[in-house]
């Protein structure tokens, strides 16, 4: 499962000046109430809590104050080969900056090492405009990747920053859910009964939400039921997998005590009614997996609508 999004960050006055400086290959520090210069500039002074207003240029060389070796870089770090993260006190600053130092091995790193900025090939108004630092006197390293951060504003002030956040997760289902999805792979809809309240849950649950105990006794449910309530989705949105307009409805399978959301097709949206009897339309068997999407959608059975009293407690 992936959680990927490019966040658009507005910067406010202090960060805007700092990022604009980076775009123009200048590093600015903020002057704090005690006269110290901090890089990056904080938006608010730690002692007076007032906005930091005065920014001053600092040098593009500095001294390593501490460092750690990154033997196994993770995605999107400044370098994809082993490097050091370091706190670097730039000339003219009193508070150090966190950034990467490109050296071949930990043996080449030491506290007190003088390092200088290596700018990215293209600067865009982001902290990654500093590709990394390299020891003073060392040759520049070839930048490993072009920055995806920053804005595309090449003139005037940089006021926004695009920050991609891309994360991958392994997604697992509970044992009860797993049974349900394995059942679907065989064309079966499996529910389970709560041993305490005896309600039939579909999908089965790791905890009956009323009793706090796992549902147990397995029950195979028919793929037919009553549409309790619904909406017609007319609005497109990012990440949507079904093209609107479509009907999203709660389907209460016969014998189940809880409905679940699914798609209704095979009927004009304007004809869909509460209480309508519907049945599952399965995808061709060779397209089945362990997913509820094995059921392409539900469509009307043609039976008379269910009496309101039979489903009103499910609204």
């Amino acid at each position: 499962m992936r959680v990927d999004f490019d966040y658009t960050r507005s910067l406010g006055p202090v960060l805007s000046q700092f990022m604009t400086g980076l775009r123009d290959r200048r590093i600015l520090g903020g002057v704090l109430s005690d006269g110290q210069v901090a890089v990056p500039p904080p938006e608010y002074d730690g002692s007076t809590h007032q906005p930091v207003t005065e920014l001053v240029p600092v040098g593009d060389e500095g001294v390593v104050q501490t460092w750690a070796w990154v033997s196994e870089p993770v995605d999107d770090q400044p370098l994809s080969v082993p490097f050091a993260f370091a706190l670097i006190l730039l000339d003219g600053a009193d508070v150090p900056l966190l950034h990467a130092v490109a050296v071949d091995s930990p043996a080449a790193m030491e506290t007190g090492l003088r390092v200088k900025v290596q700018w990215a090939a293209e600067t865009r108004g982001a902290i990654t405009d500093i590709a990394c630092f390299v020891p003073v006197g060392a040759s520049e390293v070839v930048s490993t990747s072009s920055s995806t951060e920053g804005s595309s504003i090449t003139e005037g002030a940089v006021t926004t920053l695009i920050t991609p956040v891309n994360l991958a997760y392994d997604y697992a289902a509970s044992p009860e859910e797993s049974k349900f999805f394995r059942g679907l792979a065989e064309g079966k809809i499996l529910g389970q009964r709560c041993p305490k309240c005896e309600k039939v849950y579909v999908p089965p649950r790791g905890a009956c939400p009323v009793d706090g105990v796992p549902t147990t006794d397995e029950i195979e449910l028919p793929d037919k039921g009553t549409l309790t309530t619904f909406c017609i989705v007319n609005v497109p949105f990012l990440g949507q997998k079904i093209v609107p307009p479509y009907v999203s409805a709660y389907v209460l399978l016969d014998g189940a005590d809880i409905g679940f959301l699914h798609l209704i097709l095979g009927v004009d949206a304007a004809e869909v009614r509460m209480g309508m009897r519907v049945k599952a339309v399965w995808k061709p068997r060779d397209e089945w997996g362990t997913t509820i999407e094995n059921i392409s959608h539900f469509e009307p059975t043609g039976e008379p609508d269910a009496d309101y009293d039979t489903y009103k407690q499910h609204l």
Partner: peptide
């Protein structure tokens, strides 16, 4: 509405 595997993606926020 980040799609979660196994869940029918009919949700629209």
């Amino acid at each position: 509405s980040v799609p979660v595997p196994f869940i029918m993606p009919v949700h629209a926020g």
